[in-house]
Design a protein around this nucleic acid. Structure first.
Length: 720
DNA sequence: AATACAATCAACCGCCCTAGA
DNA sequence: TTCTAGGGCGGTTGATTGTAT
């Protein structure tokens, strides 16, 4: 078994040459596919100038983890020819200055470049890329060369693909079965040999000059930290450091090794790429399922999720999820599979009496929608008791109408950047603080008719009053700590107030689709947060379009919602008469403080969102006693507002939701939240502690979360 | 073959928390 | 109590790659 020896530095300046680009390329393509467009990303090296090595019979496992090197070459006259089979010149040696031909996914086992074993070579997009025929003679190109053969199975456990060297696919070392993993530094002995002759500074310099990505970042010694992709030499240095000093104290890496990387960069590189037992490659179906479930539970807590996926990094999971969101959103698919939805639905039922029973965000149908990202639905929680028709309270489905979609002329429809929105958010807060001096009422959380969406700046996006996202916990989140149910990507810590989902989902146009979407305008927790924390403006929410007919699952969920809605309505009615809760327009008093005094309607004329009297309760008459049959009408009329379950705004619900957000981490936030509530309500809630309950235990068992309803709250704040 | 667009993912940035001085 | 450094985390960016037209 031959040893793999790497004798080339990352970049090899090849001899100048000329290329006869047109020669053979077309034939190449024809030989393989008959198509003219045979050029592509995969480079076939030929024109051996070095002694050949016999690697005949080697089979390239495409999924095998490979090492990659960038090699600069110049094109030579000769162009490689395919044998038409795909195994080209097994054992052919290639030298810098070689000829090159390109095609897609051409495997070329056993090639050797100046002692460098190559199973595959890949053109970088900056090199020959997709237009080989456009290369000029003598033009310099860069080529990624895979350094692997599967018999030897060079699979460094600690070195994985990177942007620079990454193979298109990879696999876990365990998948190789019996194949010895060899560290890159070990296989690259020639390279190391060369490096070993260097002084540490030379080594770093060498590493630093592997690319040109340095910027102005400075370390303590005013030495510029290098940024950008890591080189293998840097990796080696970092690996050696960790082996010697262990993990942690990353800022010391630079001191001990001279590596011009900041500590954070070192930590990231180690954690995401170099540390042992990292699992690379695509997520398995099991892993994907787990991610989905974990996200349903945790939201965008990537690091926590990663703890459940050995060998996976938070970054991987995050990227996967973001990709998934986009993909499914584009496809109009629900973000969560039905089983997850049902699971959540079940839990929501259990939560029913624990916290805000009609927290829109927790509604199971929301899960099916997967992405209510961009559907502008406004809530009006001001008057309406819960009712069944539409089955979800406080839902304005009218803005499902295409015309109700945010106007392209609207600044919030197509914001130039999130930062601008954040600025707007700050402005809103500022204005509110200045002008209002009062916390807004929950009437600020409105459903507005679609026409008013545009009037109100057409904000059809989640609207989070708390850009930090950490000062307040969600109200009635789908799960403790989970904002994810709302849209699958709603970070508990991400700003939503003034933050928009920039993409309009395809589902917005699926109103006529019988199989599609259920009206499930759920009030985002951010909206309630905003209400509590005192954002002055109408909170415009979004949801998914409505379909009057649904699948059995959806109907079941609707039925559940109906039942809940009826219960809630009844409770609301009772509470309205007793003023013991947050009935619509009811005055809730506690400790001599009238909640209605504290929470009065705020119609901020200065708000950049420009919501005017149109969002006022008086102009948004609630739908009462409506039936499910009204849904289509609601869709078309785009004018009806359904109030939010008022319990969502009850302090116990608010506090409970905070507590529920995260059994472990919420303590501090909870405290903060209490303070804020105390400010608004004139009462210190800290004397009330969450009590365990049977339901909380059930939930905790179900989701492994510390679930603490507020059972010992003052009567006025207790759930029925 | 060229182009545009989408997808992927490594890396960075900024914020936050915590420990220790 | 305050300050600072170290580190973690989530969001975002931008380069690269894949794919459709």
């Amino acid at each position: 078994m031959p040893n793999i020896r790497l004798g080339t530095p990352n970049w090899v300046e090849a001899d100048a040459g000329v290329v006869d680009a047109g020669d053979g390329l077309g034939d190449w393509a024809d030989a393989e596919t008959g198509a003219a467009a045979g050029v592509g990303d995969w480079a076939i090296w030929a024109d051996a100038d070095l002694p050949r090595r016999d690697h005949a019979g080697w089979q390239l496992e495409w999924d095998v983890e490979m090492q990659w090197r960038m090699i600069a070459c110049r094109l030579l006259p000769r162009v490689a020819w395919s044998d038409g089979v795909g195994t080209l010149w097994s054992g052919t040696s290639v030298t810098p200055g070689c000829s090159i031909a390109c095609r897609r996914r051409r495997e070329w086992p056993g090639a050797v470049i100046d002692g460098l074993d190559c199973t595959k070579a890949r053109l970088s997009s900056s090199g020959v890329g997709r237009s080989t025929q456009q290369r000029r003679e003598g033009e310099e190109i860069s080529i990624k060369v895979g350094l692997c053969d599967t018999r030897r199975a060079v699979l460094p456990a600690s070195v994985s693909r990177s942007r620079t060297f990454g193979p298109p696919s990879a696999m876990n070392s365990s998948d190789l079965g019996g194949i010895t993993a060899t560290r890159f530094s070990e296989m690259n002995d020639l390279h190391n040999e060369r490096k070993s002759r260097m002084s540490p500074n030379e080594l770093i310099d060498s590493a630093s000059t592997d690319d040109d990505t340095s910027d102005g970042s400075l370390n303590a010694g005013n030495q510029a930290f290098k940024k950008g992709p890591w080189t293998s030499a840097e990796d080696t240095v970092l690996i050696d450091y960790v082996e010697k000093y262990g993990e942690g104290n990353w800022n010391a890496v630079q001191k001990h090794t001279g590596l011009s990387r900041c500590g954070k960069s070192c930590r990231l590189r180690w954690a995401n790429h170099l540390r042992p037992n990292l699992k690379k490659g695509s997520f398995t179906p099991e892993e994907e399922q787990l991610i989905i479930e974990l996200h349903a539970k945790m939201g965008n807590k990537w690091a926590r999720m990663a703890a459940y996926l050995p060998g996976r990094t938070d970054n991987e999971i995050k990227n996967y999820w973001n990709t998934r969101i986009k993909r499914r959103q584009r496809a109009g698919l629900p973000l969560y599979p039905p089983n997850i939805c049902l699971q959540i639905s079940d839990v929501n039922q259990q939560r029913e009496n624990v916290e805000c029973s009609y927290s829109v965000k927790q509604h199971p149908t929301e899960l099916l929608l997967g992405s209510n990202f961009d559907i502008p639905v406004n809530f009006d929680v001001s008057h309406q008791a819960l009712s069944y028709a539409p089955p979800f309270p406080n839902i304005v489905v009218g803005n499902m109408h295409p015309q109700s979609f945010p106007s392209p002329n609207n600044a919030f429809t197509n914001p130039t950047s999130t930062k601008e929105l954040r600025k707007s958010e700050s402005l809103i807060h500022s204005i509110h603080d200045t002008v209002c001096g009062k916390p807004p009422t929950y009437e600020h959380v409105l459903f507005e008719p679609p026409g008013k969406v545009q009037q109100n700046s057409g904000l059809g996006y989640p609207y989070d009053p708390d850009p930090s996202g950490k000062s307040l916990a969600p109200l009635g989140g789908a799960f403790p700590g989970s904002h994810s149910i709302l849209n699958g990507n709603f970070s508990a810590s991400s700003p939503a107030y003034g933050t928009v989902k920039l993409e309009l989902p395809s589902l917005q146009h699926k109103v006529a689709d019988d199989t599609s979407w259920l009206a499930c305008s759920l009030i985002p927790v951010e909206a309630v947060d905003s209400y509590v924390e005192s954002p002055p403006t109408t909170v415009l929410l979004q949801s998914a379009p409505v379909s009057p007919r649904n699948s059995g699952l959806l109907e079941a969920l609707l039925h559940e919602a109906h039942a809940l809605g009826n219960d809630e309505k009844k409770q609301t009615s009772e509470k309205s008469s007793s003023s013991s809760g947050f009935a619509p327009n009811a005055v809730v008093e506690y400790s001599g403080v009238s909640v209605s005094d504290k929470l009065e309607y705020h119609n901020d004329p200065i708000s950049p969102f420009g919501h005017s009297a149109s969002s006022a309760p008086s102009e948004t008459p609630p739908i009462s006693g409506s039936s499910f049959d009204e849904f289509p009408h609601a869709i078309s009329s785009s004018s009806k507002n359904i109030s939010l379950g008022q319990d969502c705004l009850r302090p116990d619900a608010l506090l409970g939701s905070v507590w529920l957000e995260d059994g472990v981490q919420s303590a501090d936030n909870h405290s903060v939240f209490q303070d804020r509530i105390a400010v608004h309500f004139g009462h210190d809630f800290r004397q009330y502690k969450p009590l365990p309950s049977e339901k909380s235990s059930m939930l905790g068992q179900r989701f492994g979360l510390d679930f603490k309803p507020w059972d010992n709250m003052p009567h006025a704040y207790q759930m029925p």
